[in-house]
C-alpha cells in the first residue's frame, strides 16, 4: 500500500518505500528531498528562509534551510537511514514576482537555493538533480521506491528529475 505524505510550508516529513512524499505549490521556498538508496528511506523538507541564525523567532526547525536539513537527517537516521549514503534532489526557489528593485529580500528564492546547496555541500551530501529558480511555482512528488522526483508546473508537461 503506497501512501502519499504531505509536507506543508515550513514542514518536513520522512518515510520508507513505497511511500511518496509531496509538497504542493512551491514558490520561493525550496523543497529538499533526501534519500538513502540502500534502505529506501527518504525525507522531504519545505524550507522558507536560508538561515535560522539571522532570525530571532527560530523555533520551527523546518522553516530554515540549515536547521531543516539537520532535522531531516536526524529523523531519517532514526528511521534507519545510513547517513553516509544520503543523496539529495532539490526544487523551487522561484522568483514569483518580477520586482524591478534589487532589494535583497526580493531575491529570497535565489538565496534559499544558494543556502541549501551550500549546506548540502558542507554535509558532503551529493545533489543528484535540481530544478530551481525561474519564475513559476512547482508541485513536487518524491518516490522513495526508486528515488525519482516528479515536478509539476502550470502549463508545462510533468517532468522527472
Amino acid at each position: 500500500m503506497q501512501n502519499t505524505i504531505k509536507v506543508g510550508m515550513a514542514d518536513l516529513n520522512v518515510c520508507v518505500a513505497p511511500d511518496v512524499l509531496t509538497t504542493l505549490g512551491l514558490g520561493s521556498c525550496v523543497g529538499i528531498a533526501l534519500y538513502d538508496p540502500s534502505s529506501k528511506i527518504s525525507g522531504m523538507a519545505h524550507i522558507m528562509l536560508p538561515d535560522s541564525t539571522q532570525i530571532k523567532n527560530n523555533s520551527n526547525l523546518a522553516k530554515f534551510a540549515d536547521t531543516g536539513i539537520n532535522e531531516l537527517i536526524a529523523q531519517m537516521i532514526k528511521l534507519g537511514a545510513n547517513r553516509n549514503k544520503l543523496v539529495a534532489k532539490i526544487a523551487g526557489g522561484a522568483q514569483m514576482f518580477a520586482f524591478t528593485s534589487t532589494n535583497e529580500t526580493m531575491r529570497i528564492g535565489d538565496r534559499n537555493v544558494e543556502a541549501t546547496i551550500k549546506i548540502l555541500n558542507n554535509l558532503k551530501i551529493n545533489i543528484l538533480a535540481q530544478e530551481t529558480g525561474a519564475t513559476y511555482g512547482r508541485t513536487i512528488e518524491f518516490y522513495s521506491e526508486d528515488g525519482r522526483l516528479l515536478i509539476k508546473t502550470i502549463g508545462k508537461p510533468n517532468k522527472y528529475i
Partner: peptide, 10 residues
C-alpha cells in the same frame, strides 16, 4: 499568476 501556494510563499 500561478499556484496559490507559490504565490503565497512570497
Amino acid at each position: 499568476m500561478d499556484m496559490a501556494g507559490a504565490i503565497l510563499s512570497v
